[in-house]
Nucleic acid binder design. Sequence first.
RNA 1: GCCGGGGUGGGGUAGCAUGGUUAUCCUAUGGGACUGUGGAUCCCAUGACUCGGGUUCAAAUCUCGGCCCCGGCCCCA
Length: 434
Amino acid sequence: MFERLRGTRDFLPNEMAARKKVFSTIKKTVEEFGFFETDTPAIELFDLYSIKSGEEIIEELYAFEDKGGRMISLRPELTPSVVRVLVSKSKELSFPVKWYSIPRLWRYERPQSGRLREFYQLNIDIFGSEDARADTEVISCAIKLLCDLGFDDSDIEVRVSDRRLLQEFLLTLGITNFHDVLRIIDKREKISQNDFKGMLFDINLDDCQINKIETFLDSKGDLLQSIEELSKNHKGEGISKVIESLKKIAQNLHDRGYEKFISFDPSIVRGLDYYTGMVFEVHDRKREFRALFGGGRYDNLAELFGGEHIPAVGFGMGDAVLELMMRRKGIWPEEKLELDVFIATIGNVEKEVSKVSTVLRDSGFRVDFDLMSRNLSNQIKFATKLGARSLLIIGERDLKDGNITIRDLETGKESKILLSEVVSSPSKHLTKVL
RNA sequence: GCCGGGGUGGGGUAGCAUGGUUAUCCUAUGGGACUGUGGAUCCCAUGACUCGGGUUCAAAUCUCGGCCCCGGCCCCA
């Protein structure tokens, strides 16, 4: 016996049935927003990840040397691959490009609630547009997606900010070590106020600066309103440009009727160094789970990869947290098998079974029948376990008059019918699930 | 890598504090009976103390270590 690798999952047919429904909802919504599906290899050159990442990230790669002596890694995220494709094809693509993908990703991390070593992640990105409408489109798609899955504004909160806002603000305070400060701000929710102050103090900020930072971070709330206030309180060329673009995003989201989902939160910074503008995060309102989405604008990644300047905005959504949240709300689909027709037999009726099953399958029904020569009772039991909607009973005795029995397994109603009748017009007597 | 809580048939469990007959119950799976209606029922069978060391006359039970699972930290691209 072999054990499943830590942090990985097996999906049995009934579990897979539920996942398929969720994934198809996701795909449908995203495609309604005009995104096209892409895919890239699960393996890439190790360097694709080592170039822009720190040592800690590299430690979490599933990496190995191939037979040609190349260092290879399983992809831990999709963005580098997509940007690689984009850079190599940029001359032949017409921009903006709206792409999505639901890759399987691998990260060698310690599994926790909502975090696994192998998982799926929906990625959507818009490349080529710097316009605030692109940012809005991405955020709207995230919101619509959650609505279509069955969530509403009482379940989730989308917090939006812009990294440049915080940076410009820190500059006005004379603070330049963004990297350290952002890191601490990112932790603020998890630690006490004293620890927060202490950590900032440790990197040589004074009380006055710390107080101002706290006041600034607390200016969260309704997106439009908060931004209006910001623009009153913070003048200056750099900062007003950022505020202007946030205002556009806010107004646009408002026009789409999504204002209830959105709030402004200047403490959202999303990781480090990666993002260059708008950033957003989606959480459950109770904060029971880790972030469901994270995304934002990353305008200079293509250049980092040796291409031309291609502005980009997008997000990633992992399937693990999504499943936890949907289960908590009771909207994860039922894990049950689905079959349209099961044919039960009594005696030697092989010929008729072959004929009927073929006709039904040709008409698009999902059909199965007994392969074990079981008695009728056990066949019915088995049909129920397969989730069959309808049951056909073909028995030697009734067949002498050309009859078979047809039973609706959901209502329990059954009737006798001519076999020839079912064969000539199956859709009249049987229904397909879905 | 660090910290905490756990591992009893395929799944879910009782037993463990206070060591002592054949390890409980539900479910699942397989077979059989009811001679074509039973999505049943009844009968039979299958099947477990995570692994290794220690204490003891005796360990599922106490103890140490490994492995694995769950949760948290770190990190979260």
